[in-house]
Design a protein around this nucleic acid. Structure first.
Lengths: 122, 122
DNA sequence: ATAGATGCAAAGGGTTTGCACTTGA
DNA sequence: TCAAGTGCAAACCCTTTGCATCTAT
C-alpha cells in the first residue's frame, strides 16, 4: 500500500461514504462508478492491504461472504436485513455473557448478529 | 430421502454420536470410518436432504463453512474454540436484545457466538 | 527510470451437478 | 425390476495468483 492510486482512493472513498460493512462485490460495484475499469482482483488486494495496515477490519457474518468496514470504530455488533441483505452497525452490547460459558471453557470474545427488516424494507 | 442406505445411516449416526455441529468435511471423515468408499458429494446431498426434511439444521458461524446438527434442539448458541476449531453448543441466552435495535428496524432473531478455549485446549 | 500497482486470465479451494453404475425395496 | 442413490469427475462460484502492462514517484 505504498502508492496512492485512483483505484485505492476510490475503494477507500466507497468504504467511507457508504459507512456500512461491504462485501468485495459491493465495493467493486460502487467503486467502478468512480473508476470504470476497476478489476475485482484489485478490490481483493486493496481490501487485504487495508486490513494489513489496520485501516479496515473484516466483518464476518454467518453464511455470508466477509465484509469490510473502516477501522477505528468502538465495540459494536451488526444487523442484517433479511430482505435486502444489507448489513448495518448496531450500538450497544448486552455485555456480560459469562452465564452462557460452561465450566472448563474460557470465552475471550463474542459476536452478536441480529436479523430482521431494516428501515427501508419493513 | 426415500431409501435407507448405509451411507445415510452412517451420516445420521455421526451427527447423533458426535453431538456437535459438523462441517461436511468432518462428517465425511467420521462417516468414512463406517462406510469407507463414501464420497463427499453424497455427504453434501445427504446433509441437504436432512435439512429439507427438517431432520437437521444448518449452523453458520462467521467466517466458517456451514455446519450441520440434528434438529429439534431448543434455542441455543455456539462456542467456537479458537485453538482446535471445534464448535460446541451453549446453554442459555441473554434474552432481550431489543436495546440494540435502532428505531425503524425490526429484529426477528439473533445469533450469538462466543470464541475462546474449550476444555481440551485451555 | 523503475518498483509498485493494475487487469486479465488461469489456478485454487470448497460446493454442486451430470452421468453411468449400483442397490434398496 | 428399476427408480433412488452413489461415486467419480467436471462444472461452478468466489477468491487468489502469475504475468505482462501501466503508472506514481
Amino acid at each position: 500500500m505504498e502508492r496512492s492510486t485512483r483505484q485505492r482512493q476510490a475503494i477507500r472513498e466507497v468504504l467511507s461514504e457508504l459507512n456500512r460493512p461491504l462485501s468485495p462485490a459491493e465495493v467493486l460495484e460502487a467503486a467502478r462508478r468512480k473508476v470504470p475499469g476497476l478489476g475485482i482482483a484489485t478490490v481483493y488486494r486493496t481490501l487485504k492491504g487495508l486490513l494489513a495496515e489496520g485501516s479496515a477490519v473484516m466483518v464476518e457474518l454467518p453464511g455470508e461472504p466477509p465484509r469490510y468496514e473502516l477501522a477505528g470504530k468502538k465495540h459494536h455488533h451488526h444487523f442484517r436485513c433479511t430482505r435486502c441483505g444489507k448489513v448495518f452497525e448496531l450500538e450497544g452490547c448486552p455485555g456480560d455473557l459469562s452465564d452462557m460459558v460452561p465450566a472448563g471453557f474460557r470465552a475471550e470474545r463474542h459476536e452478536i448478529v441480529l436479523y430482521g427488516a431494516c428501515t427501508e424494507c419493513h
